[in-house]
Structures are given as structure tokens and as C-alpha cells.
Design a protein around this nucleic acid. Structure first.
Length: 322
DNA sequence: AACTGCAGCAACCGCCCAGCA
DNA sequence: CTGCTGGGCGGTTGCTGCAGT
């Protein structure tokens, strides 16, 4: 007797998520919080598998996710953690809270694997997690593993101390300090913006959409901004604001710029939300109004703004290793 | 300009595990 | 103890965009 599918295969939509679906999902999670994924499709009307919803949230929509270019430091961390932990991407991701396991996995498979292979072929060495235990006698491979672990520990330690050497109290706490200052204008989050932007545009182009022009839909696209202007809502009722100079703190965050009068009307219906949301690409030095729910969401991600915390968690987590 | 191959990445699939009745 | 369910995880697939020819 096989395990029943996690959801009915009939009528379950697959493939890329549309902005419309994203909005519905984020709206629902802002209201109810993540979890109980089983009920998400039924309660939201999304024709998606619960798993798909969870994945979409954790890998793409969750606040505080950083996308795009990996810094040298992150790269080093991944390499060493992979050597240490193997392909346990979730565990590795826990050391890089701004990255998802999927992201790290993809980066490993597309970039680092090749890079390491290249390095290996260049140097003839086989360090740093390259799986080459095949063919070795068991005892030898165990000893080898011990050595690898020791090397990985050492390397990770070095990577961490390297990181500590950096001024962690730089004015903007930006993890991108590990990047050259002149890194190109497409921010590390461009991928996210572009994806969402593209999806939004596709959505608007789609025949199902009643709004076919930017102006009529309330979305405006500029070179660097995608802003939905709302008809009725404004930020006047914002209960709190957080000034943050970090792009990534807002990456993937859909800010529902409701009047936030702490009533249920905010989520009256998805259709209403379509016309009442702010879908904004975060800017440097942007003041973003946040509601309580948004604060709750942001609190989760806000800690990820600070590399200090990452380091702290690393220290704690690796304390037993060294 | 058209075609082809490749790289990158979002999403899916299936297995595993923990919690619960 | 056993079976069921939901959620998590790692591997894989397939779509999209871009570079090369």
C-alpha cells in the first residue's frame, strides 16, 4: 500500500508561481503565520499543493532572504561546511540564515562543484569535500575522513576568524562589505526583483488579467523601482517605521501598505488586496511602514540583518567542534 | 537573424522522520 | 506498538535566458 499523495493530484496547479498567487500566499501567511501548510490551499483557494506553498514561502517569499551573488565569505563557508557536513543543505543553510537550503544547493551544484573540480584538477589535491572516497579500503577512508574533518574544522575556523577581522560595526552592517564597493548595480537581490517584476508583467499581460496597463493596475515600473500605487490606502496609519539601509532586509518582502487599522478588514478578500497593496522594491535608505504583522515578520528577518548575529550563532554552533 | 548548447535556478518528487491518536 | 499525517530534506527535472556559432 503506497503512501497517499500529500495532496490531490487532480486540479493541483504546477509550475511557476504567478505574482497573484504569491500575493495570496503572503497575505495569508501574514495573517496566520507560517505553518499548518495543509490548510493553506483550502483556506486561500490556491490550487497548489501544501508542499508547494511551503516551498514557495521558505525559498522565495520569506522575509530576510538574500538572493543573488554569494560573497566570498559565504562561498568559503559553504565549501567548508559542505566538507564538514556533507550535502546536508538545511544544516549548512542554518549557518547562513539569509540563504535558503535550495539556494545553497543550487549554488553548490552550479558553481562550487565545478570550481572545486577545477581546483582539484589543477592542484591534484582532493580536499574540500569532493567525494572521492570510492575505491579506498574502509580503514583508509575512515582515516581520510578524520583528516578531512580536521582540515574542514581548521578551514572553517580560519574562515570565521577572517570574518571576525572585519569591522562588524560598520555603519550599515551590510554583509556586502565583503564585496567590492563597486559591485555592479544589479544588487544581490536583483534576481528576486527581476523575477517578481517579470511575473508581474506577465500577469498583467495575461488575458485573464483585467488590468492591462501599468497605470490601470496601479503598478508602476521604473528602472529600479516597481511600485504599486494604491487607490485608497496610504501609509498614514503606519504604526511603526523601521529605517534600514539594507536592501536584503526587505528582499522578497511584500509590504501590504494597508491603512493598518488593526482590523480584520485588511484581509477581507484577496481580490481587494490586489488593489490595495504596495509591491515595492526596497530602496536604500527607505522608510518602510510596518504593521504589527509586518513587524512580526520582520522581527524574524531583522536579526538576519546583522552579520554579528550570524557570527554569534556560528560561534555558538561550532563551539563544540573546536 | 536564426539556431544551438549551456548555465542558472525555481519547482517538483519521493523518501524520511516526528508527533499524535 | 502501530498506523496515519504533516512537515522537512535532498536529489532531480525542466524552463528560461544568454552566449556562441
Amino acid at each position: 500500500m503506497g503512501r497517499p499523495p500529500c495532496c490531490d493530484k487532480i486540479g493541483v496547479k504546477k509550475g511557476p508561481w504567478t505574482p497573484e498567487e504569491d500575493i495570496i500566499l503572503v497575505s495569508y501567511i501574514q495573517q496566520h503565520g507560517p505553518g499548518n501548510w495543509r490548510s493553506v490551499p483550502t483556506n486561500t483557494g490556491l490550487m497548489r499543493c501544501s508542499k508547494s506553498c511551503r516551498l514557495r514561502w521558505t525559498n522565495y517569499l520569506r522575509p530576510g532572504i538574500k538572493r543573488g551573488n554569494f560573497t566570498d565569505h559565504e562561498e568559503k563557508m559553504i565549501i567548508h561546511l559542505q566538507a564538514l557536513l556533507g550535502n546536508r543543505w538545511a544544516a549548512i543553510a542554518s549557518y547562513l540564515p539569509q540563504r535558503t537550503d535550495n539556494d545553497i544547493k543550487n549554488y553548490w551544484n552550479t558553481h562550487l562543484k565545478k570550481k572545486l573540480k577545477k581546483d582539484e584538477s589543477g592542484s591534484g589535491s582532493d580536499q574540500e569535500g569532493v567525494d572521492n572516497k570510492g575505491g579506498q579500503p574502509k580503514g583508509q577512508w575512515e582515516r581520510r575522513l578524520q583528516t578531512d574533518i580536521q582540515m574542514a574544522k581548521k578551514a572553517l575556523s580560519e574562515a570565521l576568524s577572517l570574518n571576525h577581522a572585519k569591522p562588524s560595526s560598520s555603519s550599515d552592517h551590510d554583509i556586502t562589505t565583503t564585496r567590492p564597493n563597486h559591485y555592479p548595480s544589479p544588487s544581490p537581490y536583483a534576481s528576486s526583483y527581476e523575477n517578481i517584476s517579470r511575473l508581474m508583467e506577465n500577469w498583467m499581460k495575461s488575458p485573464n488579467s483585467t488590468e492591462t496597463t501599468n497605470s490601470s493596475s496601479g503598478y508602476s515600473f521604473t528602472n529600479n523601482n516597481m511600485i504599486a500605487t494604491t487607490g485608497s490606502s496610504s501609509s498614514e496609519g503606519a504604526q511603526s517605521t523601521i529605517t534600514c539601509t539594507q536592501d536584503h532586509a526587505f528582499d522578497s518582502l511584500l509590504t501590504f501598505n494597508s491603512s493598518s487599522k488593526s482590523d480584520g478588514s485588511r484581509f477581507r478578500s484577496v481580490e481587494e488586496n490586489h488593489n490595495n497593496l504596495t509591491y515595492t522594491k526596497p530602496n536604500l535608505e527607505t522608510q518602510v511602514p510596518l504593521t504589527l504583522l509586518e513587524n512580526w515578520l520582520f522581527d524574524d528577518g531583522a536579526t538576519q540583518c546583522h552579520e554579528d548575529l550570524i557570527n554569534m550563532s556560528l560561534e555558538e554552533s561550532t563551539a563544540g567542534l573546536f
